[in-house]
Design a protein around this nucleic acid. Structure first.
Lengths: 245, 245
DNA sequence: TCAAAAGTGTTTGTTATACACCCATGT
DNA sequence: ACATGGGTGTATAACAAACACTTTTGA
């Protein structure tokens, strides 16, 4: 893949295009929804119940309606296919290779991205899907079309995003320990982090508030519980910050 | 604008959508092309010569053809409307509000982004445009549709992007001084930077090579010329880096 | 008493920030 | 001689990385 600022090819348009297109056969939306369970990063997949791709796994998605925004389309699709309702999604990227959905019909898709707590949602399977699961991103089945690539782009985006915007509000319980927060980052980055250094960095960002409470029913020393400081958290979502792990 | 990780509204889908849509009326592509001239950040604008928006300024763009990828569409459009050929563009974001192009017809657009040297291109105006200019981003006219917002998103993206990927290859001459490089960053960020600190940081990134030459015909001490080390530059485009200004 | 995770401290080296300062050149 | 931008040095504080260590708890 040519990187943006590298030397340019003389002309990336390989051949002259065909006739203008008054209407794109299909604009769809697909959702890359990440969640944490069993200390692993999971993504939400559905098994198609109808059409050419019956029986195959893919991302929840579908065709955009005329009178809904792209964001509304993504929310609706996700709710319909999986029962996951009312979450806020970010645009990831459009995927529009001519034959990405097979050679007959051109389908351009816009991928959305979100982070949620799997245990907050009961997966409800629609008539268009025969199954919906939270799947470990590292052990996922082969997906239809270019959905594997879309998931990879989603993971890459997430790994970059955690360096400049807070995450966690939708991935952790309201009160959590620094250990749980670290497990979250480790699951996303797929690497172990140094505990003392991680704690110091997180506390310095200044979006955590100590609850003056500790865990209970844990088979080891109870950790102090923290929560996100909503005001600073929101501020940092806008302003961003920057650090390395 | 609700930030991704903030508390979610109960359900962002305000009203139930209308009938399914077999075909989107229009998918277009718009290009936010930035360049540096007179030490200012400029963007490429065209004046529409036809249609409802005749006489108004907007971004170069148009409808995607059936047999071209999105990237090809963006390149073609830019070349046709302005004569700027053969540049590599990055996807920025899709804009799809229902009434973004007026209330009659729904038009979804995908914005692309690129950085070029204005003086490398002779602006050639097509029949669909009556004018094409490089316009200071801070003094631009009001643009059609939501193009003002698209330019703002482009600027915000650029300002974030320079923190983790190299820029400059397409914005500066092959050989340049550290002063010119600093002017570039200052134009993008719209703020003055400390010279000694800027130099140290840039040199530490390790994508610059000293040419062992100096400027000439300058009315002050001649600066040492540098060029980009293509190999490390490309590597950093992939890997990314991270710093603050 | 042991495992497991919480939590603290310290050392070493690097980087950021904010300056003051000198250098070379054309007018 | 001076304005202009090129270029260097330095003191202070902040931060990163690596690692050793102590604490609390349930089993």
């Amino acid at each position: 893949m040519g990187s943006f600022d590298q030397n340019m090819p003389a002309n990336p348009v390989a051949e002259l295009p065909s006739e203008p297109l008054e209407s794109i056969p299909s604009l769809t939306v697909d959702c890359v929804i990440f969640g944490l369970s069993d200390k692993r990063l999971k993504t939400l997949l559905v098994k198609h119940a109808i059409g050419d791709s019956k029986g195959e796994w893919g991302l929840p998605g579908g065709v955009v309606y005329t009178k809904e925004s792209l964001e509304e389309a993504a929310s609706r699709m996700l709710g319909d296919l999986t029962g996951v309702q009312g979450i806020y999604m970010e645009q990831l990227q459009a995927f529009g290779d001519v034959e990405r959905a097979g050679s007959e019909k051109r389908v351009i898709t816009l991928a959305f991205f979100a982070l949620v707590q799997p245990e907050h949602y009961e997966l409800a399977i629609s008539s268009d899907a025969s199954d919906a699961i939270w799947c470990d991103v590292k052990e996922r089945p082969e997906l239809i079309f270019d959905h594997d690539k879309i998931v990879d782009v989603g993971i890459a985006y997430l790994r970059r995003r955690i360096r400049y915007k807070p995450i966690g509000v939708n991935l952790l319980p309201a009160k959590f320990t620094l250990g749980q927060l670290q497990e979250l980052y480790e699951a996303i980055l797929d690497e172990k982090l140094d505990k003392p250094n991680f704690r110091r960095k997180m506390l310095r960002i200044n979006f955590l508030v100590c609850c003056n409470e500790t865990q209970d029913n844990v088979p080891h020393r109870a950790g102090v519980l923290y929560r996100f400081d909503q005001e600073n958290y929101d501020l940092l979502c806008d302003k961003g910050f920057s650090f390395e792990f």
